[in-house]
Design a protein around this nucleic acid. Structure first.
Lengths: 147, 147
DNA sequence: GTTAATGCAAACGGTTTGCAGGGGT
DNA sequence: ACCCCTGCAAACCGTTTGCATTAAC
């Protein structure tokens, strides 16, 4: 959600004909400052300090709205709760199978690469997303310390 | 689940020290004949004709066991129920966002390709999985017919 | 003032678990 | 005979929905 400001939210709400409520603004602000890939639950917890009356279903509803507006993208990784990606640039993900951390990966050469012919025959491809599973350095070093 | 037979299941159960029950055998047999990516529910429904007394939780438990044995692989796609992949060869997926069909894609050149340096620095990568989202030809032609 | 959005609570759906009885070794 | 596995039912947990109230326009 880099390089976007609160002004843009106002504009987007206007264009979409929906109201710019206090909750939407605060959830947007929270997403702006998120560098990770938070779940609805995590966003709710972080927001709860500032907005003690906010309900978890409002967070879900707002994230669904933001998804429709193209402000966030849903991630379905492992069997966990849905994560929300605020980075709209074309990118991919490294996922630590141990601590479940998700990190963004940029690989422009791959994004430009032609797909195999067999794939093109299956239908019209709209996007490609690469998931790399492994163990992150943090977990690897923890493992060494245990030995 | 190509190129594997029931003999292998017997061997695997023996090695793992678990029992080769009627249910496990039938679920394995069902998976052998699956060319798609069925959910636990679908496997349950298909099996119900042959084994009317089988319970859905047995299907879940058995699939979890098979996952541990490396006989199937879980797929977490869109926000749906978990799908089970019986194809253990290295491959990727084309996913139709309209009808939610999942098709296997082989791309050996990509499997051999070096990852960007930044990725290697994040940790030890164990596998990579590519998801291509789009509209399948079947859905595309349905769309044309509607016009 | 009108209408859409929120908060609350209850429902939902896929998946998991505790337990007692049954089947494989 | 032993004990793991199954079937049944109930719990579980993330997410969604119905409804009355509240707040944005």
């Amino acid at each position: 959600m880099t390089s976007r400001g609160l002004e843009q939210l106002k504009q987007l709400c206007n264009d979409a004909g929906i109201k710019l409520t206090h909750q939407r603004l605060e959830i947007f602000r929270e997403l702006l400052s998120s560098n990770d890939h938070p779940s609805a639950e995590i966003i709710y917890q972080r927001l709860h300090k500032k907005l003690p009356t906010i309900a978890i279903d409002t967070v879900y509803r707002t994230l669904a709205t933001f998804d429709e507006l193209g402000l966030v993208r849903k991630l379905h990784i492992m069997n966990e709760r849905t994560l929300f990606d605020t980075n709209l640039d074309i990118h991919h993900h490294f996922i630590c199978t141990r601590c479940r951390k998700v990190e963004d990966i940029y690989w422009p050469d791959f994004d430009k690469a032609m797909l195999p012919e067999s794939t093109e025959k299956m239908g019209k491809i709209q996007s490609r997303h690469l998931e790399m599973l492994g163990i992150c350095n943090e977990c690897l070093s923890k493992q060494e310390n245990q030995d």
